[in-house]
Computed example of a mutant assay.
Amino acid sequence: MAETTASFMDDDDFSHAVKGVRYPPDVTEDNLEAMANFELRDDDIVIVAFPKAGTNWMLEIVNKILSACGKTDTSSDDMVGKLEFSYPHEPRPRHVMLQTCASPRVILTHLTPHTAPPGISQPKDNVKVIVVMRNPKDTAVSYFHFEQKLRASFERKPLPSWDEFFQLFLAGKHTYGCYFDHVLGWWQRRDDPHFLFLKYEDMKKNLPNAVRSVATFLEVKLDDASIEAIAHACTFSNMKAALDKSRYGDRTVNARKGLVGDWKTMFTDEQSKLLDLKCKTKLEGTGLSLDFE
């Protein structure tokens, strides 16, 4: 298994390594270096999540909250794009394009605190950072299916089998590195009032409550009817319908099932035990617990 995984990573044309962490091809080393000098505005809203942990879902919620209070008249499609990416259809990297975007800007990133701009990892003034966390088993399954679809659309080499992908994910050798380093890196900021932490699983259990929490964090006053309307618009089925109509191809393959516990359709008992052990080792004593059901 290890030899197969290593050989796949060595000749994979859909990722590259920077300082020991693998990134998608659109995250260039120049872009990563530019993060140190990216300046935040006082009214910026940042959404942070590991890939496939709820970035687009939170973007829909934030966009609709800002629309409801009259702070934006753009769609989530106009806000999409990870801070660290250069997209083939855009002439400039996203971090450069954001410099000309109207405020309030909604900034999306999968970066860790060590690679994100200082204004995000150590925010000042009125900058707001929303961190979305999803259990690693569902994250891994969602990531696997998403990347297979994305690779097929670009006619790139497919991922290896699920078993091999799981080994990469467990070892932190797939794109964006170790899931636990990412989550725990941000979790260390939990006592900073600039941050709001939400679990994907809690959002599934009570979406109106999550919408209310985000609105309160963004200092937006909405009545109960508005909260319920936004929650309804951001249910998975409604969000999927919106993403399917996106003008961006990668968004159209983003939403698959949106379930909690879908990992059971892919994980073997042995894989489940291995990741449970990793969770216990990494999370014990951190105060962070993750829900798998």
Rank of each mutant, 00 (worst) to 15 (best):
1 M>F: 10
1 M>A: 13
1 M>D: 07
3 E>P: 04
3 E>C: 05
4 T>K: 14
6 A>R: 13
7 S>Y: 04
11 D>P: 00
11 D>L: 10
12 D>I: 02
16 H>A: 07
18 V>D: 06
20 G>R: 05
22 R>K: 08
23 Y>G: 01
26 D>Q: 11
29 E>F: 14
29 E>R: 12
30 D>C: 02
31 N>E: 03
37 N>M: 05
41 R>E: 12
44 D>I: 09
44 D>R: 09
49 A>H: 10
51 P>A: 04
53 A>V: 09
53 A>G: 14
56 N>F: 08
58 M>P: 11
58 M>H: 08
59 L>A: 11
63 N>A: 01
67 S>G: 10
69 C>P: 02
71 K>F: 14
72 T>Q: 09
73 D>R: 15
73 D>A: 12
74 T>H: 13
78 D>C: 11
79 M>D: 04
84 E>N: 01
84 E>H: 12
85 F>P: 00
90 E>D: 04
95 H>N: 09
95 H>R: 03
96 V>E: 11
99 Q>T: 06
100 T>M: 00
101 C>R: 13
101 C>I: 00
105 R>V: 01
105 R>T: 08
107 I>Q: 01
107 I>K: 00
115 T>N: 08
116 A>E: 10
117 P>Y: 03
123 P>A: 10
125 D>T: 09
125 D>G: 11
127 V>P: 03
127 V>Y: 00
130 I>Q: 01
133 M>W: 13
134 R>K: 14
137 K>H: 12
138 D>T: 09
138 D>L: 11
139 T>H: 08
143 Y>V: 05
144 F>L: 10
145 H>P: 02
149 K>G: 09
149 K>E: 15
149 K>Q: 15
151 R>K: 10
152 A>H: 15
156 R>C: 09
157 K>A: 15
158 P>G: 10
159 L>I: 07
161 S>A: 04
161 S>I: 01
169 F>M: 14
172 G>E: 06
176 Y>W: 14
177 G>C: 03
180 F>G: 03
188 Q>R: 14
188 Q>G: 01
189 R>N: 15
189 R>V: 00
194 H>R: 09
194 H>P: 08
194 H>I: 06
204 K>N: 14
207 L>P: 06
211 V>S: 02
212 R>V: 05
214 V>R: 07
215 A>H: 04
218 L>S: 00
219 E>N: 15
219 E>P: 01
220 V>C: 15
222 L>H: 08
223 D>Y: 05
226 S>I: 04
227 I>R: 04
231 A>C: 07
232 H>P: 00
233 A>K: 12
233 A>T: 07
233 A>F: 04
245 K>H: 10
251 R>Y: 06
253 V>C: 11
255 A>F: 15
255 A>E: 14
256 R>G: 09
258 G>K: 02
260 V>I: 12
261 G>Q: 05
263 W>T: 02
263 W>K: 01
266 M>S: 15
267 F>N: 02
269 D>T: 14
270 E>Q: 06
273 K>V: 05
276 D>P: 01
280 K>N: 13
291 D>R: 14
